[in-house]
């Protein structure tokens, strides 16, 4: 399948370029397909390519020494990933895994540098992409460093236990995130942490509070 010029034009990096310039860039773009749950990038490895998602979704994440995952971003069609190491020359700062079948457009690091030299007008758009990334990560750092989100999630669960007379309100992770003043990704991690603490059990669409006292103890940590 040929790389579509309209798709390249829809990418913020290249949105200010004309058809002739896009045509030259198209020659440097290669396609990569992957199935569900395939690793596309490994954190710490040397960075070879910049990727744009053409179809499908990619999860970008870091893994702790204990094997816990923290999602940094979910990359959707038209968006890029692995931008940072392509420009700073360092290793991949995070891993990336497909969330379903995917089609990626890749550009080799050296080719991207040549594109920037040949078409310096794209630099402003590259800066915009990187600036958005910084803004998103600063917000995530704030959530992870300064907020005891886990105690707030514990409190939310406690306050929304279904009553004896029937079902209590049902909550999505997005709603819990809004209540806790954090990102959905951080709520997902908090629920897993509460499960590891033995306070709750995730059973499909149910969150079962298995140890009320343990949950209350976690709630008492000042947030």
């Amino acid at each position: 399948m040929a790389v579509q010029l309209e798709f390249l034009k829809s990418i913020l990096y290249f949105s200010d370029l004309g058809l002739a310039e896009l045509e030259s860039i198209r020659k440097l773009v290669f396609e990569k397909t992957a199935d569900r749950a395939e690793m596309v990038l490994l954190e710490g490895e040397s960075a070879a390519n910049l990727y744009f998602v053409a179809s499908g979704v990619v999860k970008v994440f870091r893994t702790s020494a204990e094997g816990k995952e923290q999602i940094l971003s979910i990359v959707r069609p038209g968006e890029s990933f692995n931008d940072v190491p392509i420009f700073d020359g360092g290793p991949n700062p995070a891993s990336a895994r497909t969330m379903g079948p995917i089609l990626l457009y890749g550009i080799k690091k050296n080719d991207m540098e040549a594109i920037l030299r040949d078409y310096p007008q794209i630099a402003l758009n590259v800066i915009k992409v990187l600036a958005r990334r910084v803004r998103h990560l600063v917000s995530l750092v704030e959530d992870l460093s300064f907020k005891h989100v886990i105690s707030r999630v514990a409190k939310i669960l406690f306050e929304h236990i279904g009553g004896e007379m029937g079902r209590g309100p049902r909550l999505t992770q997005q709603e819990m995130a809004a209540m806790a003043g954090t990102a959905r990704e951080v709520v997902g991690r908090s629920l897993k942490a509460l499960e590891e603490e033995g306070a709750i059990k995730l059973d499909r669409h149910r969150i079962i509070i298995t140890d009320k006292e343990a949950l209350q103890k976690i709630m008492e940590v000042p947030s």
């Binding site: 909550l171 999505t172 969150i207 079962i208």
Partner: peptide, 9 residues
């Protein structure tokens, strides 16, 4: 949406 029901064991 994938809502969770929260129940006490």
């Amino acid at each position: 949406s994938c809502p969770f029901e929260i129940i006490l064991q």
